[in-house]
Design a protein around this nucleic acid. Structure first.
Lengths: 122, 122
DNA sequence: TTTACTAGTATACTTTAGTATAGCACTTCC
DNA sequence: GGAAGTGCTATACTAAAGTATACTAGTAAA
């Protein structure tokens, strides 16, 4: 559901906005969440595949973050009855729609960097 | 400048995207950045005004965060030669355009919460 | 002269986030 | 029988983020 008022139109910052922004922030902030989501954004992957994808992450961190992402409805975990067991992680449909958010963040990040550098040159 | 490829179109996650997302995250993540930006989003304010706006923040934190935001080109600090001195904080034009990012975050946050709750009910 | 306002700083602390290193249970390959 | 691959967990640590409490200099009103 679309919020009734955007930040631009609103005259003050309603609590529900802050809460919704925080929900989104909780999903993507921290040292490893973006790399993990990035790794899953284009394909489902297994534990060790993600680990190989993100060279410096420890299994403890990967495990911890994946659990948190699963709890938050961002990642779906599927265990296959193979020998040895294989476990697949994939983004939920809701998480896939994160790319809209990420796109605006990329755009703002690039623009903002240009604006800041521009001011320093002048 | 608009990035050439969006997350949806891209087949892998380019480094420049990750960097730009991190730039944006650095500006808005942490316990107090959003409340401070929220407080300045509709008007310029003085130190104690912001402090009254955000009841539980300590002056140490407010001071620290404002310095960081100033360094990152998000906030502009102006000292007025009144007695006692008054200092005004306002968002830079670049920071004001953050509301587009925040809007998509609000929208995703609300949708995602609905999706997660929906799954729990079923 | 005490009080209160301005915009903060100083010091010491707790809490949360992240790291380092080792190990487990299971199975297959050599 | 040992090594190697599966998906992790346990313990102990360091580093970063945030809190609590007190305090500063300058001025002005009571």
């Amino acid at each position: 559901m679309k919020p009734k008022v955007s930040f631009k139109e609103a005259k003050s910052c309603p609590l529900q906005f802050v809460l919704a922004v925080n929900d989104t922030l909780n999903v993507i902030s921290g040292k490893w969440k973006m790399p993990i989501i990035g790794s899953l954004l284009f394909d489902k992957r297994r534990f060790t595949e993600i680990q190989r994808n993100i060279p410096k992450i420890t299994p403890r961190m990967l495990s911890k973050e994946l659990k948190e992402l699963e709890l938050n409805g961002v990642v779906k975990r599927t265990v296959y009855d193979t020998l040895p067991v294989s476990v697949e992680y994939e983004l939920t449909p809701s998480a896939k729609s994160l790319n809209h958010v990420l796109d605006t963040m990329v755009e703002w990040g690039i623009r903002h960097r240009e604006a800041v550098v521009g001011r320093q040159k002048r």
